[in-house]
Design a protein around this nucleic acid. Structure first.
Length: 283
DNA sequence: CCTGAAACCTGTCTGC
DNA sequence: TGCAGACAGGTTTCAG
């Protein structure tokens, strides 16, 4: 599930709390339960638990698809990968648990308040880092699409600094941080650009159009609280607004031509061959 | 530098 | 109905 809009949705839910659970801000960690040790990238489980006891959560930040819990000392960083999810749970209690409450719960942070933060991850791809320096985890990321320092001209320069197919390039978090398969396909469709185009062939107008389309699609995703697909449901309904993603053979919302699905860089890729022609703007 | 394949995992869907 | 195989939102690593 989680791309930038889904991670941002979760960040806001954890920060604001709901009618049933309080905000994470200000919670003090009383204990840790770890059910799948490989979810923990660093440090060792023993150091992890000992350091976190007594730590207080001060703010929640997002960088690309990473969620960063800023503590009074240190940083706790989550990457949800394919199936990860975070929830504030009123039933965890303040002491360590032997068994998970829900299937696929991998990690609990118990709070003095009796609430707790649960990390659930069916496919076990998600990772957690506890580090004194967040740059050690996220320094290689490309710019966030919403970074005000990222200009359309700068984006054009980035596209021309390499010769790669747009689809895998936009998915590369070292190039731009936050896009996954859904929002990449939707952004390229909105921009009217073929996913197979080579990055250095885009004109300045196409590059500007692409960056603005990426921002528009991500903002739309956030406005809909992200997309809820399969077992991960966080209240989002952006999946009802896909124009090409998972719309294979359905009519293109713009021209009516059947949406095509191809494989690009090992990833299923959806586009409209009429609205996103391969030759458009090549020079 | 770039591309493609494989690996890490479990659940679901498709087709025989 | 049962079961093998393909496939899924992500990322890293390695071979060519």
């Amino acid at each position: 599930m989680p791309e930038l809009p889904e991670v941002e949705t979760i960040r806001r839910l954890l920060e604001n709390g709901t009618a049933d659970v309080p905000s994470l801000i200000g919670q003090t960690i009383s204990a840790v339960s770890l059910f799948w040790s490989r979810s923990l990238a660093t440090p060792t489980p023993e150091v992890f638990a000992a350091f976190l006891k007594g730590r207080k959560i001060t703010t929640l930040e997002r960088r690309g698809k990473f969620l960063i819990l800023v503590l009074d000392e240190g940083y706790l960083i989550f990457h949800l990968r394919m199936s990860g999810d975070l929830r504030t749970d009123p039933a965890l209690g303040s002491i360590q648990r032997i068994n998970p409450i829900l299937p696929h719960d991998r990690l609990y942070l118990h709070f003095d308040s009796g609430y707790g933060l649960a990390f659930n991850d069916t496919r076990k791809f998600g990772r957690v880092w506890l580090t004194p320096d967040p740059q050690a985890v996220i320094s290689k990321l490309g710019p966030d699409p919403f970074d005000p320092a990222l200009t359309t001209g700068g984006f054009y320069e980035m596209l021309h600094a390499t010769k790669r197919q747009l689809k895998p390039l936009l998915l590369d978090q070292h190039f731009l941080a936050g896009l996954g398969n859904i929002y990449t396909d939707e952004s390229l469709f909105l921009a009217g650009i073929n996913p197979l185009r080579q990055s250095h062939t885009l004109t300045a107008n196409e590059a500007e159009n692409l960056l603005l389309s990426i921002r528009q699609v991500l903002n739309l995703g956030i406005a809909h609280n992200g997309a809820s697909i399969d077992w991960v449901y966080r209240g989002g309904n952006f999946q009802n607004h896909f124009k090409v993603y998972q719309q294979t053979n359905n009519p293109c919302p713009t021209c009516g031509a059947p949406v095509q699905r191809i494989n690009v860089g090992q990833r299923g890729t959806h586009f409209c061959p009429h609205c996103q022609p391969l030759t458009k703007g090549e020079d």
